[in-house]
Design a protein around this nucleic acid. Structure first.
Length: 211
DNA sequence: CGGCTGATGATCT
DNA sequence: GATCATCAGCCGG
């Protein structure tokens, strides 16, 4: 992890090109495990390693785009690799990566990060110094990175305030489970996580299933 | 760790 | 007016 932090702070993260992202949303959700999320802020560079994702598909009643485009979900219909940001429960921002398209509403929710760079800034934004609580859970992740609706629709494969980078350390074994906190299409195994990572959210019983 | 509750506000019906 | 892709705090084991 120390190696990863140094690389992230030293600008050694390589930005992913859109052609590197799998063109299918479930494959993208798996692919993103281990990849780096980079947030550029005046206070410096924040970065984390993705350890947990969920896929939301076009034919999936749990997907915000299931009933077609609306003002809120339009970013899900952008070509893969764009940000879809929305407010959940009036309290928590959610950061997603559009997963298909253009014109197809699907995406990947980023649910947890292992902090790599800018830990002090994350601690300040989160109001805690507990490393495990900085970005474990989608709302915490967005708060740690200072993600808000101003980033909705942003191209994450381009230089800018938020982008996706290659893995600084390869992902370990990937586990799979049902998604968390939904009621529609709740049985589908569309949640992915790095097995054994302590930075993964959710109840322990979901985090022991194989991928 | 698991289970429960209230807060909170945008979105869509 | 109902419905949330959540979280912090509190409780019991």
């Amino acid at each position: 992890m120390d190696q990863g932090r140094l690389a992230a702070e030293g600008l050694a993260v390589r930005r992913l090109g859109r052609d590197e992202l799998p063109g299918e949303t479930v494959a993208l959700a798996r692919f993103l495990i281990g990849c780096t999320v980079v947030r550029e802020l005046p206070e410096g560079r924040l970065a984390g390693r993705v350890v947990e994702t969920e896929a939301y598909l076009q034919d999936d009643a749990a997907c915000h785009a299931f009933r077609g485009p609306t003002p809120r979900n339009r970013s899900l219909f952008l070509e893969r690799g764009h940000a879809y940001v929305y407010l959940a429960y009036g309290t928590s921002m959610m950061l997603n990566v559009s997963g298909d398209g253009p014109g197809i509403g699907a995406g990947v929710l980023l649910r947890a990060l292992e902090p790599l760079a800018g830990v002090a800034a994350m601690e300040r934004r989160r109001g805690t110094t507990r490393l495990l609580d900085l970005a474990r859970g989608p709302g915490r992740l967005a708060q740690a990175l200072g993600v808000d609706r101003g980033l909705d629709g942003l191209d994450l494969c381009a230089p800018g305030p938020l982008w996706l980078g290659a893995a600084l350390r390869p992902a370990g074994a990937i586990g799979c489970s049902v998604r968390i906190g939904i009621t529609k299409d709740a049985h589908r195994p569309l949640r992915f996580f790095e097995a054994g990572s302590r930075f993964v959210s959710g109840p322990g019983r979901l985090n022991r299933e194989a991928g």
